[in-house]
Amino acid sequence: MTKRSGTTADPPAEPVGGATRATRPVPAPGAALLAVLALIWLATMLWSARTAIFSNAGTLSITMSAYALPALVGPSLVAGVAASLLTANLLARRGIGRPTPRFAAAIGVGLVTGVLAALVVKLTYGGGAAVTILAGTIAAAVIIGSALGVLRPSVVGAALLASLAVSAVTFTLAYFKTDLTTLYGSGDTIESQAGALRWFSWTASLASGLVAGLLAFGYLRRTGRRAELVDPDRPPLRWPAYLAAGAGAGLLLLVAEVLIRTAGSRVLALAGSISAADRDAQGLLGGSRVNHALVVLFVGALTALIAFGRTLGPAAEDAGPDDEAIEPGKPAESSEPVTR
């Protein structure tokens, strides 16, 4: 901004909670709604898994725990991110922008949420080593998710919305699985059924990635416009933010898979020791989950980045000192020295 003659320069932005106006995080829009949806999703999956595990006993209970593990770790991770984002939102609205109090508060909220979820599993799913490991894995997923939620609120909010959308797309396509596999040529032979399932898996992964990328882009665009209205001097979001937000849902799926294979590895091992068929099934399902996460990650990131690129206009060319406009009727001054 051009300063008038005789005026002093604008004073520097006053720090609020350890951060200036230009550096303190922008509250993520709709964090409360996203947290409610994430907790509802976790509660629904906990109830569904409880029905399957509690109604069985013995080795079948261990098998059902292994199958329920991936269905519970993902929602637990997302619930931890949502609780942390809501906490960071409240602190940002109070002007607390320093990382240390945000991280401490997020971990505290994640710890409480994770312990409550683990207690629900331990008290209602029945006894056994598999249930105990399942409860501990869920608590670890919530706490790790809360640690991830202290990152840039706008990007975390976009990734959280994309993750909830991916779960909705997956659930919807699973409801129409029979119709889609029939459309892809599933018949009486094993080869046709396997081919139709592969096409169905690719359809679910690609659709999830596209939805994740578009929603992450739309969320960040809205966040950027709101931030610009509040503080016009704040720099706009750049392409790395859109790339990270679009890839966020796939990254959370990969983190969930790491937790499944580390913290929950004992449950998978117990189920695999029952029979070779269970062991092979767990291996196939694990590979399918990794492929799904990678497709969602790359497709979501590319979709968000392409959508952001389409909003960019042509680069403005700065006029140089020799490109000044010449008034009509006025000859251009010669650059050669005048001979007297």
Rank of each mutant, 00 (worst) to 15 (best):
G300D: 02
N89R: 11
T59M: 13
D10M: 12
L294H: 03
R289S: 04
S186A: 15
T172F: 15
V230S: 08
G250H: 08
A162W: 03
P11T: 15
A130P: 03
A141D: 05
S84C: 09
E336L: 12
L91N: 06
L302D: 02
R266C: 01
F308R: 10
P11Y: 13
G97R: 04
L251V: 13
L164K: 01
M64C: 03
G6V: 08
V258N: 01
T172E: 04
S288N: 07
L42H: 05
W41Y: 11
P29M: 07
A244Q: 10
I143T: 04
V267N: 04
V296S: 00
T182Q: 14
I190D: 07
G246K: 06
V26L: 06
L237V: 02
A31S: 09
L243I: 10
A118D: 00
A159L: 08
R261Q: 13
L34T: 01
E327R: 11
T189Q: 02
R226G: 02
D323Q: 15
V150A: 03
A66D: 02
G110R: 01
V338G: 00
T51W: 12
T311Q: 10
L77N: 01
P70S: 09
L42T: 05
P27V: 12
L305W: 15
V156F: 06
A332P: 02
L151N: 12
E333I: 15
A140I: 14
A216N: 05
G74L: 13
V36K: 03
T100G: 09
G213D: 09
R261V: 11
G309V: 10
G246I: 13
G246Y: 10
T124A: 05
L90E: 09
G224H: 08
A204K: 06
L173I: 14
A82T: 07
T303E: 04
G114K: 06
R225Y: 15
G95L: 14
P11R: 12
I326S: 08
V290A: 02
M45I: 09
I62C: 00
L297Q: 07
A212P: 02
R94E: 10
G58N: 07
A28L: 08
R98G: 05
A241K: 03
E14N: 05
V78T: 05
Q282N: 06
G95K: 09
T87R: 03
A281I: 12
A247M: 13
A162C: 06
L90P: 02
R226N: 09
G74Y: 12
A68R: 01
I107S: 00
A162Y: 04
V121C: 01
G218N: 13
E333K: 13
